[in-house]
């Protein structure tokens, strides 16, 4: 595997579905953050075949739980002094407001632009979120 070098202190977001790294990068607004970031695309994975990884140097102050909403397979490791000090368990939030969007063309959110898209966790085991307006399940792709 391509070696990006060790991380002294920071966060490793691993097991990102291959192709999704940029979406996560954008959500975390890493383009605006003054930190060193490595994006590894299409890394080999025993579990997933291919995966993406993001390594971020230094502390970041975003809600990492949201990553689980976007991609439930993601794992997050917190690194300090070259060691994994915490394998962060992503806790799926009960509701998600203004981050993911309903794609149902029959939903009221499809015609009223100013409505804030809101989802509720309806099946915690499978990580299913449904739009509060039309109840359509959120599709990750």
């Amino acid at each position: 595997m391509l070696n990006i070098g060790g991380l002294n202190q920071g966060v490793v977001i691993d097991h990102i579905k291959a192709g999704n790294a940029m979406k996560i990068y954008e959500y975390l607004q890493l383009d605006k953050a003054d930190v060193c970031v490595a994006i590894i695309k299409n890394a080999k994975s025993n579990k997933m075949g291919k995966k993406d990884i993001i390594k971020i140097e230094g502390p970041i102050s975003v809600d990492l739980d949201m990553l689980g909403v976007m991609d439930p397979d993601i794992t997050v490791n917190i690194i300090d002094e070259d060691r994994i000090v915490e394998k962060r368990h992503l806790h799926l939030p009960e509701s998600v407001t203004g981050i993911i969007r309903c794609k149902n063309p029959r939903c009221i959110t499809s015609i009223e632009q100013e409505l804030i898209h809101k989802f509720k966790l309806t099946d915690a085991e499978n990580g299913v979120y449904r739009c509060v307006y039309c109840e359509q399940a959120f599709r990750r792709n």
Partner: peptide, 23 residues
């Protein structure tokens, strides 16, 4: 015709809203 419209209405209404069919 759009799903969820009565729910939107209920969030801004000061009178009771009955959904008479949303899509």
């Amino acid at each position: 015709p759009k799903e969820g419209a009565p729910l939107v209405a209920s969030q801004y209404s000061s009178i009771p809203v009955i959904n008479a069919g949303d899509g």
